[in-house]
Each structure stands twice: as C-alpha cells, then as structure tokens.
Design a protein around this nucleic acid. Structure first.
Lengths: 338, 338
DNA sequence: CTGTTAGCGCTTTCAG
DNA sequence: CTGAAAGCGCTAACAG
C-alpha cells in the first residue's frame, strides 16, 4: 500500500545546492551560477555541476530562491465568477496562462467576487506571492485596481476602467463594434432600431451603448432603448417593451448574445419573423449564437478571437515594456438573424 | 507620474516580523505566534502585537514562511486547453478554485498540453511550489498522473484514469448516465437506437459506450454504433452513416452535446423529424443544448451541476481525509428532442 | 507564557 | 573564474 500524504505533511527530503556542490566538488555559489546560467563559469566546471544536478535530480527550491531574490515569477490572474458558461473568460484564462507559462511565470488564479476576496487578493500581493497582476473585468474591479496599484506591483486590466487612471489596460473596441453593428442595420434600410442593453454599470455595456447611439445620431435616427439584465429572459422582456413603445421597430441590437437570444424568442412569440420583420444582432459571439434559429448575427469580441494577441499585450504591459492602453478591433459576424 | 515597476523589479521594503517585534517590545517568536493564532499568548501581549501589526500594515512574507515550514498552501490545478467554449472545465475551475480559496489555499493554474508542459509540471511540484495537485482530464493525463504520484505530493484526478491505480479520483457516472438515456429511449418504444460516439480513447466516452451497450443488451436490442470526433460536423456525418446502415433508426444517443447538435442538423437534412421520426439525446448539457431546435434532451453531468460538491470531494481527498474514488450521479434532462 | 537559538535553501557581494 | 560569508524573513524546538 502506497503511503499517501495529506496536504499538510511536507515533502520528503530532496537534494539541495549543498548536496550538488559536494558532489561536484565546488562551492554552492558556483552551482547557483550554473543553475541560473548566470555568471561566467569555466566549461569543465559547468559540465561537472550539470552532471551532478542530473544525477541527483536536483530542482532548486522555489521558496528559498524567492526569499533571496524577492521575486516569485508568479502572476496573479484575478477574475470574478462568471456565468458558468462564460466562454470568453475561459478563453482569456487559457491564453493568458499559456503566454505567461511560455514566459516562465507561474499563474495564481484568484476569484474576486466578495469584498472578502478583495482583501485576500491585496494580502496575497503584499505577502509577495505574485509580482504581477492581471485583472479581468469584475464588478468591483475599479476599487480593487486602485488598491492594487498602490501596492506597486505591476498591474494590467482587461477592459477599460470606469474611472481613468494610469493603470494600463487592454480592451475590445466595444464602441466600434456596436457602431459597426448599427451601421450594418442602417445599410439594410432598417429605420427603427432598438437597443436592448445589459447592466449599465459595466463599462463595456456603456461603450456599446455609446457606439450605437452615436451612429444612430449621425444617421439622424432616434434611439429606442430598453434596459435589461444579462439573461435571455430579461432580453425577451425588453423586446416586448420595445415593441409596445414602437410598433414599427424593425431591428434590434442587444449588448450581449444572451439578451439577443431572449429577443429572438420574444420576437417569435410576438409573431415577428426574423430577420424579415425584425433584424436581431447580438454581441459577443458566444457558442450558442451559432445554434439559435435563425443563427445569430453578432459582434465578435477580440477576446474570443484574438485572445492570444491580447494575452501577449497584457504580458508586455506587466513587464513594464508598455504602459499605454490597447484597444483591439471587434468585428461583425453575419449570420441569418440580421 | 507614478513610477511603475517591471515584473522583475522586486518590491519596496515592507515591515518584517522584526519590525513588529521591536514595536510591540516582544520577541519575533511571540509575534509569529500571534500572527499564526498559534500557541498560547497572554491577551495583553497579543493585543499589543496585533496593534503593532495593524499600525505597520504587516503582512507575513510567504516565501520565508514557506521556506521554514516546507509548505506552500498552494494547490496546482492542472488542465489541458479545452475547446475554447468548454463550459464544463470553466465551471470546474471556478468551483475548485472557490473551494480551495475558502480553505485558505492558493491555486496555481497549469496547462498540460505538451510533453514540455508535463515536464514543467513535474518540476513545479519538485520545486516545492505546490503541495497538492488536482488533475483535470487531459489527453496524456495518465502518464502525468503516474509521474506525479511518484513525487509524493497528494494528487486527485477528475475522471477515472484509464489504468486503475491508487490515485483517488472523482468522476461523473458516465455509465449510469448513458444507461439512463438509453432506458429513456427504450421506454418510449424506440426500437432501433444508434450511438454516435466521440473520441474512444477518452475514458468518459468508453464509459458512456459501455452504459449504452449494456442497457441495450439487457433489453435484447442490437447496437448501432458510429464513431465520430467531437465536432458537430462529425456528429452529422455519423448520423448519415447510421441512417444508411439502418433506415429504421428511430433514436440516437450521442456521447456529447456537440455531436448531438450535428445529429440534429443532419436529421433535418435527411428529412427526419425530431423527435417524431428520430429521438436525439446528447450528453453534457452544454449551454447551447437549450437553444437548439428542438431543444436537446441530454444527460447532465455533475460537473456542470454539482460542481461545488465535486470540488469539495476533491479537496477532502487532497487533504488525505479520503482516498476512495467517488462517482457522482448524472441525470437526464428531458427537453424536446427525445 | 515568552525569549533564544538555529536553521529552511538560495543568492549575492566581496575577496582572492 | 571561484569560494567564503552574510543574509532574505520566518518557524520551531528548547530553555527558562
């Protein structure tokens, strides 16, 4: 029977620098140099050391190194619990992780949902557990970002912060995406375009609203806005309200695909054919968007698209190589709904 | 202009135990005790220390603590890059993280896609960076699991390993789920039931196949199996083959919802009405399953359902409190497709 | 109940 | 190019 240790048990003894040094008949310092590919070490000595390392299966102890260098090579990836099906967050996490690992960093995943968790995150950083933070969009992200910025650890945000600050961020062009969607609708000759928008405290939603409104305005059209939550149900309810306000409504842009799916449903119930009577455009291009009937036309956010590029941009900001914000283009994916 | 440090810069000087001790006029040991809520310390001294801690904003240095205790309170969460829209993995990650954080652990996220990454993971563990590993299903999970098991760090798998070992795991009842789905179809009087199955090297797929086959066998029915990949397209192709082999086919179970979605599509193209002519049942209950036409009947895996319970079970195994495998029930979600 | 004393394993001047 | 020595900040016996 294999002995299995509990979490708190500690580990069996592993070789240390000392062991390797003895074996290679050199000093610890020299081994350290070799292991870190650091200073100049004579080839023969290096050979010896490397052999000893291999033979002993030596792996440097991270805690000791970290204590001495005051670095951890760890980046905290902070996110909130998204909808369990939030593919966007999943993709971002994947790519950010992949890029960071490629750069030799560890990734510590942290959830930022409660204020308790905010405290934990700040403590974590102050305990020196990470030397960089990537903050994905969260409800209370802004205050958290401010607190983290004060700790002096490099920080990069995904998504423009509500209050502008010096913290670098990477964002999708929500404004441009909404504008493109609206133009698309206008080009089709749609004259009464409604907007179903999600939680307005989200900066992304605000930006989408702005892009829509401005485009409409430039075209000399009146906006029709209905506020909603972020579920299909609330999207459906919003369409119902929109229709009762304006019977001639012939197009709807929703600020999320979930809302759009609800709009689709409500349209069917109201006896409006999509896209003939009513064009429907969503935002985000979630997976389900391709499976609705009719398939949803939507704005694809770079996060679900160029997530890799985005991750790299974040990393370069973490490393202090750039501090300017980046906005990645969003593009319209035309399917059957509008 | 705020000075922003690069990742490698280190941090400004923070107070240490020493500082706090001086301020509270006690020894470092005492401060340590207070901070760790550890031994018995007289109330007044504790007060003093706590005040000093607060005033100085002291936060213990994790590396130093880890070096001294040989623990990290960190658990590595290892996953492979799933389909970018893999909600299941996302949910599991969320809940495992949440539970572990609740238990005061850090979570290090690691990707296990390449053999290079396997090496990195083993090194990570050997460097003492984590004192527990949660391994989510991955293509090469088994060899990795074996290597990790040899490092003596507590390990728990999500999903039964292909080759049985002593490593504890938590899994969904794939066999039972497939059996339930098949019985459901049989009860409807379906007589020619096909199986569209995904990558057969996946243990979960094997289990689903087995549950289906056995149930069919007990009912004295012949199986009709078509192999597929994991995309909707391959599911569609599989149905086409199934239909050409057996025109009377009146039901299909797919081992994943993605496949089932393809089946739905192909059924429509073949002019079979679902569920009248052909019942279709998926597996997994992904989000899109609710939005297909008709809405997909499917087997809900606990991971997308009782993910929280699952996470807790994993934790208790990591802590060595249990070493037995757990299999969580899967249940049929009946919608319109079958 | 509290202080003293050793380390934990690695990096990093500083000499040589 | 290499070694000696001094920590990094904390915990854990062991005395008292």
């Amino acid at each position: 029977m294999v002995r299995r240790n509990g979490l708190g048990d500690g580990r069996p003894k592993r070789p240390t620098l000392e062991t390797v040094a003895a074996r290679a008949k050199v000093s610890r310092a020299t081994v350290s140099r070799v292991v870190n590919g650091d200073a100049a070490v004579s080839p023969e000595v290096r050979e010896n050391v490397l052999r000893a390392v291999k033979e002993l299966g030596y792996v440097p102890n991270a805690a000791a190194r970290s204590l001495a260098t005051r670095r951890t090579d760890t980046v905290a990836l902070v996110l909130s619990i998204p909808r369990p099906d939030d593919a966007l967050t999943a993709a971002v996490v994947q790519y950010v992780t992949s890029v960071l690992e490629g750069a030799g960093k560890q990734i510590t995943l942290m959830l930022a949902d409660t204020s308790e968790s905010h405290r934990r995150i700040v403590r974590h950083v102050e305990a020196g557990l990470s030397d960089g933070v990537v903050l994905l969009p969260t409800d209370g992200a802004d205050p958290l970002a401010e607190r983290l910025a004060r700790t002096d650890v490099p920080l990069v945000l995904l998504g423009r912060p509500a209050i502008s600050s010096l913290v670098p961020y990477v964002d999708a062009d929500n404004t441009g995406g909404a504008a493109a969607a609206t133009e698309h609708l206008l080009r089709q000759g749609r004259r009464h375009i409604g907007l179903v928008c999600g939680p307005t405290h989200l900066v992304a939603v605000q930006d989408r609203m702005a892009g829509h409104r401005d485009t409409l305005q430039r075209a000399g059209r009146l906006p029709h806005v209905a506020l909603a939550g972020d579920t299909a149900e609330s999207g459906a309810a919003a369409l119902t309200r929109l229709l009762s306000d304006e019977r001639r409504l012939d197009a709807v842009l929703a600020t999320s695909d979930h809302l759009a799916i609800g709009v689709l449903r409500a349209a069917a119930e109201a006896g409006r054919r999509v896209p003939d009577d009513l064009a429907v455009v969503g935002f985000g291009d979630i997976e389900a968007a391709a499976y609705t009937t009719p398939a949803l036309t939507t704005v694809r956010t770079p996060a679900s698209d160029q997530a890799m590029a985005l991750a790299r941009l974040m990393l370069s900001r973490l490393e202090g190589r750039h501090a300017t914000p980046v906005v990645l283009p969003a593009r319209l994916v035309t399917r059957s709904s509008g």
